[in-house]
Amino acid sequence: MKNKKLIELKNISKIYPERDIPTLDNLSLSIQEGESLVIIGSSGSGKTTLLKLLNGLEVPTSGSIEIKGKDIKSYDILDLRRSFFGYVFQKIGLFPHMTVKENISIVLRLTKKSPKFCEKRVCELLDFIRLSPETYLDRYPDELSGGEQQRVGVARALAADSECLLMDEPFGALDAVTRCELQDEIIRLKEEFKKTIVFITHDISEAFKLGDRIAVMQKGKIEQISSKENLYESPKTPFVEQLVQTGLGI
């Protein structure tokens, strides 16, 4: 691993006035280029907020975010969203009024790519996620299974050839078999395209399967961030220990 920092968060806090405790509490984190970082935590631990800070959907109350060594504010946020990050959303991810083709190519169309280019790219991506273009191009989301929908969601995140994929519990609503298949797809994707992946989950076995490094979050703080072996062998807090043991079925 090259060990080059892609994204760095320094002393980030996020406070919503309507809540008494901070959602993110003086949190620091760096994400290496080409790694897959899985953030795990129970609901309300602040993991989705963390992800939204990265592509500017939320703004930190204090602290700074650097991307490739430059402050996030010096970038055009729309550019970042369209072509630096690819976002895969929780549950509802596709626009119901657009076909598979239209959904996947939407970001390309926003940036005024030619229809021919869009079509070609959509077909490549469908091939990659193993959905045959002839069958799926003109289908609407409600004509797809849950697994197929999330595959299309992943394809959309890849469309603009972004460097970093942000995935917010993308497989949370799927059955175990489909989930397992899709996790394999993510591993394949990582190996084939060398993308940096930030993946959110509340499932420890998913975290173990996908993560080069795992960050355990609770109450707006990172309890521990390390490789899965390290996490298993030397948990820093009782919460981490309990989590790991649950994941291993002990």
Binding site: R81, F89, I92, F95, L110, R156
Partner: peptide, 15 residues
């Protein structure tokens, strides 16, 4: 319109 869709649009960088 369900707010999720608006957020997705936002996240994908729609003007």
């Amino acid at each position: 319109i369900p707010p999720e869709y608006l957020e997705i649009a936002e996240g994908l960088g729609f003007l």
